[in-house]
Design a protein around this nucleic acid. Sequence first.
DNA 1: ATGTCCAAGGAAAACGTTTGCACACCGGTT
DNA 2: AACCGGTGTGCAAACGTTTTCCTTGGACAT
Lengths: 355, 355
Amino acid sequence: MADIKDVARQAGVSISTVSRVINDSKAVSPELKSKVNQAIARIGYSANSVARGLKIFKTNNIAIIITSVSRTFFASVLEGANNAADQLGYSMIIAETHDSLEREMQLVDAFASQWVDGIVLASSAYGNDPKTVQYIEKLQSLEKKGMRIPVITLEYALDSQYIDAVVIDHEKAAYKAVCYLINSINRKNIIHISLPKNHLMGRMRIAGYKRAFEESGLVYDENNIIAGDYTTYSGYKIVKQLLADNRKFDAIFCANDQMAVGAIKACEEFKILIPEQVAIVGNDDIFAASIVSPSLTSISVPKFELGATAVRRMHEIIGGDGTRKPRQIISLDTSFEERESTVRNAKRSLKYLEW
Amino acid sequence: MADIKDVARQAGVSISTVSRVINDSKAVSPELKSKVNQAIARIGYSANSVARGLKIFKTNNIAIIITSVSRTFFASVLEGANNAADQLGYSMIIAETHDSLEREMQLVDAFASQWVDGIVLASSAYGNDPKTVQYIEKLQSLEKKGMRIPVITLEYALDSQYIDAVVIDHEKAAYKAVCYLINSINRKNIIHISLPKNHLMGRMRIAGYKRAFEESGLVYDENNIIAGDYTTYSGYKIVKQLLADNRKFDAIFCANDQMAVGAIKACEEFKILIPEQVAIVGNDDIFAASIVSPSLTSISVPKFELGATAVRRMHEIIGGDGTRKPRQIISLDTSFEERESTVRNAKRSLKYLEW
DNA sequence: ATGTCCAAGGAAAACGTTTGCACACCGGTT
DNA sequence: AACCGGTGTGCAAACGTTTTCCTTGGACAT
């Protein structure tokens, strides 16, 4: 591969001039400029980004840390992020934590020493134990040669004054979904399959569930909250157990769609009619929600926009004058997709065809 | 962020010594070694990969170029690739072409000047027009400072003597699927919804379809091959048209699962019974195949392994002594998943619960 | 005592860029 | 004729590493 020296030699100019041409900085006389450009074209030169990165402290790489690509929710987020990155001239480095906070921390370190320009982070960190607090402090102060490496979290904000986030109002979305179950389709015994214990987003959704109950004058019963672990299997297993135990319920609100699919399959196995006997609502509106049968009513989260917005915001921060900007928390709206798991013969949107 | 100089100062040794410690190369006396390690721990130093990359011509980045993450097929491939990369100490840079060969070429150039250690490529290149031939030549000769940047293609091999590939025997898989339709469930009028015209993998599948017909003593009719464009919508539209035209057929073999899902939805709309009136077979066995209703019989491609194998092979090449290894084409086996779209009451595997 | 060899560690060059600085040139003022 | 300001160009330092080459000093043999 040719380097800048080769170009300089070919064009009969200095290295500096070549550099100025490829960065079209400063004034370079038209003649030299065209000589240089010709030389570049002739030998097929392309500036080396590693060397440039070292010099200017900018790699044009943005890292995105998610739990797993096979969680289709994150595949969509990733796609949005990558699209925006592409448009803005960044490469996207991807990494998966598989829900390990340990791993997440390692990855952050690795990316910092790789001098990525920013990190988009679907974090597993929450709570305020010393380890977490310390970790968040570190996230705030990641830097390369004095320049801050910005971090933006997805879905919820960290307990920090500095770290930006692109979030969803989980409490409100859950509240509305449960209100819908109570008021629109008249269910009173609603099971909530939540996220793993203490998970921040899980707690927000539980709060929404609780508020819906209280505002409707129903009693909130903690026993109706059962923690799942994101997977389809956990939803399946939990509902199967409930049915085996003869628990009475007429609706299930799941904290994500995968668990809701599991719930549907369990009901199917027990010949429970959906939605007549049990209505089911999921969360996220992943693609599977449209094609499962019955199709799944779900809180629709703008996944693509989540990723794209984070990257765009990152670009603003990076491109800025280097001064620390005031923290910004961008909140994205959800919508509600009513499908067959809550109303028989729901109008079938052809959304899934857009796949 | 501290650099190696800071460590050296702290530990009271030279830069070289620090470098030797972090690379545990050569002999460093135990005392100095521990002094250095303490200094590193104290100031939280971590070697900068950009500078190191520049020096040693190795970035530990592997690029993967696919058409789109939202094609869940590729999400699985990506996951496999990323898993392997993780284990071997690489970061994964991802990029999408959205089926544009133009874009693919740009990306390859960009990655080469980024000095990635290798490129895993789901290429859109096929045929032997001059432009393509030239492109393949370029792919063969990507290099950074005299070292070759290896390229490994996914799914099918390029027309090159040098570029490795991890492939599927598409012809055979299609052949077996169509034989199954003909012999096991007795269908004779089989539509094939193929890939965009001239696509290499599309042609391989058509060849398998054709061979199955000929070997069964049936006449192969070109009119039964209809080109789709990967999307669910195209499958839907094509089948709808066929039904509207009153075409006679008792089975459909789709070149991918997304189009097969579209086919199912179209049949459903026309109240065609699956599999009694029309049997449907897809290709890839993406997750949706398990959850759609009726569940979809499909050729199961080892997507995860496809990505993981490519990365592992890449590592072998990179880690080698730099001599050009003989080309290797690794062929992965498919299996056949029989589900409800070809046999009523197919045993329902709980595979989807492993999601 | 002198010489030889080896291990340990430092100095400095190199990797491919960008950029501050200096310099040379030129046209226009005094 | 001397000076000035601006413009275009090159030199060389710097970015943070790795690694070659060299120096030093000690162990050992003579």
